[in-house]
Amino acid sequence: MLELRLVQGSLLKKVLEAIRELVTDANFDCSATGFSLQAMDSSHVALVALLLRSEGFEHYRCDRNLSMGMNLNNVSKMLRCAGNNDIITVKADDGSDTVTFMFESPNQDKIADFEMKLMDIDSEHLGIPDAEYQAIVRMPSSEFARICKDLSSIGDTVIISVTKEGVKFSTAGDIGTANIVCRQNKTVDKPEEATIIEMQEPVSLTFALRYMNSFTKATPLSETVTISLSSDLPVVVEYKIAEMGYIRFYLAPKIEE
């Protein structure tokens, strides 16, 4: 028996919107720790890892570990039927081949049940090692989204370079080139507007912009984004989900041929 009640149901709606472009089908795993998902895109270039900790739910009952295969576009169709202020409850019985999403309006005058068929998904679970990153950049998520969008109108790839000067996002295409440098800036009114660069050593990596743009669908989940870079690892683009957990996107770099 599984029953997860999330008062801030809009969080779940935003989570689905953040990942459904990248991943078609995925297993949602429920355990005492929380509600999680790990999945790669079809070409195995990017990986998404989601965690919503059990403590973040108003009610969290998960009698035994359960993995539920879902088509994310179908989940999204269901969740789009929930109001932004609705309380969302996810329910499933042991051994059942369906999951139920229950939506309650804030004043309890409307209650809806949407039952969705589950599917069997063969998915590989990858071990993600703890790593020391050469550079970690924290910046406003809207600024990062803007940079990715702007650069993708010029080129297909972005070179992200971190030096003492700051973080530089560069691209090149048929019509020309573009470089955007963000310097560390801690003197802002609100901490979420700061750009903070922790650099152990300079690093420069190249990535496909298409994927970066897809990651920025998570922007509504967090005011800030953290980008962790090391020369021998996929970049991690992390959006923290307040009080609950995170969405982390891993993107494999382009390498010299």
Binding site: V45, L47, L126, G127, I128, P253, K254, E256
Partner: peptide
């Protein structure tokens, strides 16, 4: 722009 690597080049199946 270089050759695109994949996640499985870096992370192992568990």
């Amino acid at each position: 722009g270089g050759k695109q690597s994949t996640i499985t080049n870096f992370f192992r199946k568990v």
